[in-house]
Design a protein around this nucleic acid. Structure first.
Lengths: 186, 186
DNA sequence: TCCTAATCTTGCCATTGACAAGATGTCACT
DNA sequence: AGTGACATCTTGTCAATGGCAAGATTAGGA
């Protein structure tokens, strides 16, 4: 399948997405080079264009795939809001390349149908995950608590990835996230 | 000062930083082009290199300046944790270009001395801003509540900028932020 | 005044994204 | 099996970019 001797790669689309994940882990999504992906996959520099059109097309596909994987990860938490939050942070850290693309609409086509569908699926799981959250002292807005939960998980994940958290937070994102998230979901 | 007829620009460093803010607002920090900045400032394409070395150098200066401006904005909230959070979100939205660079260390030199100093100053104001936060039901870790507060403000700001929040949140970031942040600081 | 250093310009090269045109393989249909 | 249409991939090209080197111009102090 991945035989480089054949004229047709056979599985180039998947190979390019896999190479993109590697490259993004190494240099970030901004410095991603389509020609580098082509080299990693052992094809010519213009091959990626056929499958994704341009760089934005490739990142759109990656983002859509990422939203589905996030939905899958959140589903595993199955009803426990705290664990859903921990899973959210864990996804951001362990599948960093996906996460970094998903929330940078300037890198992809935000109007892509598949992407919007995948994001919708992830959003549904997300809302379901925080539905069991204990509301604040007085129940104000049911959406507010969901938004607050999403914000704190997303914020912690983003700050962790940015590397700006103080050292005493430790090096285990799951444990650190659980501690912080318990402030909302005791 | 900004006379384009003279050989020496006179205030090129400042002009380039201002042009960078405009450009980032238009195309984002990733697509920033030094040559475009040079054109906006009316100088040759190699002029920016003399002041900033390379693109990372320019963004480092921008990030450092941004951290000082953030510290300034947070100081204005003066002791009120809720308003500090609102100011944080407001800074992210109204000075988007700064904010988007500040938390993307892959774009600049994270080991720059001036940057580290500015980030330290902003961090001190941040910690002071949330010091008056009411702790959770049982006081666990004094740092935990500060981290939770930072996370929720940063997360909401990031999600707002990413444009992924549902429509019903409205179009006023300050009001929306205040509502969400009240979940932590009632 | 003069001269040293800072500032800016011109010229250059490798890399990249995107496009066009052609080569190669695959597959449905007969 | 044969064939033609189509998908897949390659080669070639162009403009734009970042970065470097060498030179021109100017400011400001000795």
């Amino acid at each position: 399948m991945t035989d480089s001797r054949t004229y047709h790669h056979g599985d180039l689309r998947r190979a390019l997405l896999a190479a993109a994940l590697e490259a993004i882990d190494e240099v970030g999504p901004a410095a991603l080079s389509l020609r580098d992906l082509a080299r990693r996959a052992g094809v010519s520099h213009a091959a990626p264009a056929h499958h994704f059109g341009d760089k934005a097309g490739l990142l759109t596909a990656l983002a859509a795939q990422g939203f589905d994987l996030l939905a899958q990860a959140l589903t595993a938490a199955d009803g426990d809001p705290l664990e859903a939050g921990v899973a959210y942070v864990d996804f951001a850290v362990t599948r960093r390349a996906y996460f970094e693309v998903m929330f940078r609409p300037e890198f992809y086509r935000a109007d892509d149908a598949e992407l919007i569908a995948a994001r919708g699926r992830a959003g549904a799981v997300l809302r379901a995950g925080v539905a069991a959250l204990p509301t604040g002292s007085a129940p104000v807005d049911p959406g507010r608590d969901a938004l607050a939960a999403w914000s704190i998980a997303h914020g912690f994940a983003t700050l962790w990835l940015a590397g700006v958290l103080p050292d005493r937070v430790g090096d285990n994102p799951r444990d650190a996230a659980r501690t912080v998230l318990r402030r909302l979901a005791p």
